[in-house]
Every structure is written in structure tokens, then in C-alpha cells.
Amino acid sequence: MKYEAPETIDQAIDIYSKFNGSKKILAGGTDVLVQLRTDIVRPEMVMNIKKINSLHEFCIVDGYWKIGAAVSASKITKNTAFISEWPGIAEGVGLIGSTQIQNRATLVGNLSNASPAADGIPALVAANAKVEIVGQQGSRVKDVYSLIEGPGKLHLSKDEFITHILIPLQRDRSADCYLRFIPRTEMDIAVVGCGVNLSVKNQSISSAKIVLGAVGPKVIFADEAAELVLNSRLDKDVILKLQRMCEEIATPISDKRGSIRFRRQVAGVLAKRALQKAYARALEVS
């Protein structure tokens, strides 16, 4: 296995695009190293991108929070300005693994691994986040949702990799939330996840995105459910309907982490709770 550690983005593009064999990008390494160890991947080349300064960027540029591919989860959850603006995204990032994992794992890595159960993704999708991609042909921007093809797969060509996540600035009177369900209090993969991003006007919900994780091959927009809560104040009957609707919208599989029946039930519960929490947060900033 070849090991590369370029120091500039141009070098990285050059090395990565010219290497024809199987290859992996190493940022935090918390997924890649496990896959190496368990023989899930046997890349001929690994490219460590942590030496590239620009990939450590974490700041606001042109109306977007720009998070570099080498920024660790703990850097994100330590940024108070970011947390207060996007508490839900921060919640998702903060749930990726233990303290030790947090110090290494990256949000771009979580996205690139494209696990249906990734904790980082639902809130990003609910926030309409985008990614910046580089390759031989230059760079391009794509939204996170359409970037994901399916479990473990992104719509990227062989020479391309992600350099940054771009999260639009949060609108006024708006807030997000991410909740997941696991059987323990820590250290598990989400059995169900739910990200919600909403705005309020006169105490009613004026816009909402509800995104379910781990209940389909990729995250699911619960648009019908989001429509249902529009103009509401989350009264009991609305909440109950929303819960049932999200149970229906979820398309989970049964596996070692949960049955179809269980995941549907919990998807409804989490959607309800995440929505209530995001709503309370939005009212607070209104």
C-alpha cells in the first residue's frame, strides 16, 4: 500500500487523479482504518490530506460556513458561534463516536463513508448544505443530498474528492435539531436518526425540512410530514399525525441493529421529538 501525504491541494489532485489503482483518502481515518483492519477495503494507495492547510479551514466565506475536509469533529463542536447557529448539525457531528473518535473523525469523512446511518448527514441535508469537490477538471459544488448515491457510494468520478462542506448561514427565527436512537447511551451506530430544520413566523412554523436517517439506503426527505406541520404550532393532533406519517415514510430494513417494525416506530418518535426541539429553539431565537 502506497502512502501519500501531499501538502497542497494541487499536489493532492495530481496524486489522486493520476493514481489508477484502488485508493482511499485519509482524513480522520476512523472509518478507513477500520475497513483496512477488517479487510473491507484493501487500497493500493492511501492519501493523507491532513497536511493540506486549506482543508483545515473552518470559517464563514461568502455567506457559507466552510468546513474543510480535515477539520475534526471536536473542532466543530467546540466552535460556539457555529453551535449556536446550527445546533442540530453540531449535535449530529458530536454523536460520531467516542471522545477519541471525535478528535480524529471529520464531517467530510462521515459524509464520504456514506453510511445510511451516518449521524453527520441528516442535519446537513436538512440545512441544504453543499460540498465543494475538486478533480482534474477543476472544482464544482453539489448539494449533499444529491451527492449521495447509496450505501457507501457518492456521485463522484474517480479523480474527484471533497474538499469542503458549505453550510448556508441560518435564516432568522430558525433552528435545527438532530436526534438519533441507539440502544446504549454512547458508542453505537444510529438505529434511526432524524434531522429537522425549521423557521417560525408568529409562533407558527413557516418552513420545515425533516430528514430521516438509517431508515433507507440514503437519507429520506419526509416532505409530506414537513408540509403537514407548516403553519402549525405543533398541536397534539398535528404531532400525532406527523409521527404516523414518518412511520410510513421510513423504508428501513431489518438487521442486527433493529427490525423494520422497530425502526418505523422510532422514526416517528424521533421526528416528533426533533421537531419539538427545533421548534422550541426557533421560538427562543425569534
Binding site: G29, L33, R37, V46, N48, S74, G97, S98, Q100, N103
Partner: peptide, 27 residues
């Protein structure tokens, strides 16, 4: 465990605690 699930291999790496099993030696 070798997969970052048990923390027995924890070391402090540039000031942060990490799992040394999830870090390449070359890094």
C-alpha cells in the same frame, strides 16, 4: 479491539486523546 470501540489503545496525539489503532503509524 483494533477498531476504535474499546479505547485501550488511547494515546495523546498533539494534545488530543485518540485511538492509536485508528491512526496509521506513518501519520
Amino acid at each position: 479491539c483494533g477498531t476504535g470501540d474499546c479505547g485501550s489503545c488511547s494515546v495523546i496525539f498533539d494534545g488530543d486523546v485518540i485511538c492509536s489503532c485508528l491512526t496509521l503509524a506513518a501519520e
